[in-house]
Design a binder for these strands. Structure first.
Lengths: 148, 148
DNA sequence: ATACGTGCAAAGTATTTGCAAACGG
DNA sequence: CCGTTTGCAAATACTTTGCACGTAT
């Protein structure tokens, strides 16, 4: 069975087609790179990944593709607080995670928590907003940095 | 009785002194501006505020002051996802809020939620991290944009 | 054939840094 | 006096945009 991110790439290409976008090389490469990692990648990382695979997309096209994908809600833009935008697939299953950033070593770790999710849903409800996306970033010290 | 942000400014100046920092005009102006608003201001807004009061700090000094204040955990840096860093006082009382951003009109609204706080505490506990700061940013459509 | 997609280079915006002068203790 | 703080300007980092050319349909 294919893993969720792989399924996502197909799903994304299909959604792009359905939205009337043509199939060009740069955008396909970006989708391909994103599909390989469930967790956040920066535009620069995606660009490097494409070149590493022998592709040759311009960085501007990477940014444009990411912008398009974000508009279609196929990717979520994540801000970890270091001034670099990161992107990760919006899985069709609706499952998603949040991020823990160690301010000492810079390590980023994804986590999930059901209680947190329902608390977030309740908040959105109470505030009377429809949530497009939510993005919880916790800053702290990780095991290694504190104990190590 | 003085409001919390006003108390914060005194607290911050005292903490700066205790940490061995000298008292210069630019840093004092930044603390003063921050003390007037409990919610997030960008470096540019703080700079404008200082000039509006007849002050004349350089933008670089504003950034340097904010950096120092963040190091001492006297302010928290907030990223709303638009590429601009914002800062708000870390109140000595420990009370804090989170932010709801309307992606349509750009409005930023602070909110608090006890259930969310305890869910966050539990998550930090479970993950075995000591949280320095947490910063929940919800993206959605606000009342006005959805119904209006 | 025609409009969309792409790459390059230039522009734009936010933030940081080097350095000499001003200033506090 | 001496070392910190400041302001200016230049540098840097990330992202966006203009434009000519390539390409899918």
């Amino acid at each position: 069975m294919a893993s969720a991110p792989e399924i996502w790439a197909d799903h994304a290409l299909e959604a792009l087609g359905a939205a009337g976008f043509r199939s060009g090389g740069a955008r396909r490469s970006v989708v391909d790179q994103l599909g390989r990692r469930a967790c956040c990648q920066s535009a620069q990382e995606i660009h490097d990944g494409i070149r590493g695979d022998g592709g040759r997309a311009g960085i501007a096209s990477v940014y444009r593709a990411l912008d398009t994908l974000a508009d279609l809600q196929l990717v979520q833009r994540i801000d970890l607080g270091d001034g670099v935008a990161r992107y990760e697939p919006t899985l069709p299953s609706g499952e998603h995670h949040h991020h823990l950033v160690c301010d000492e070593c810079g390590r980023v770790e994804p986590f999930t928590d059901d209680a947190l999710e329902s608390a977030l849903d309740d908040v959105a409800d109470r505030l009377g907003v429809s949530l497009d996306a939510h993005d919880v970033v916790l800053h702290g010290s990780c095991d290694d940095c504190r104990d190590g």
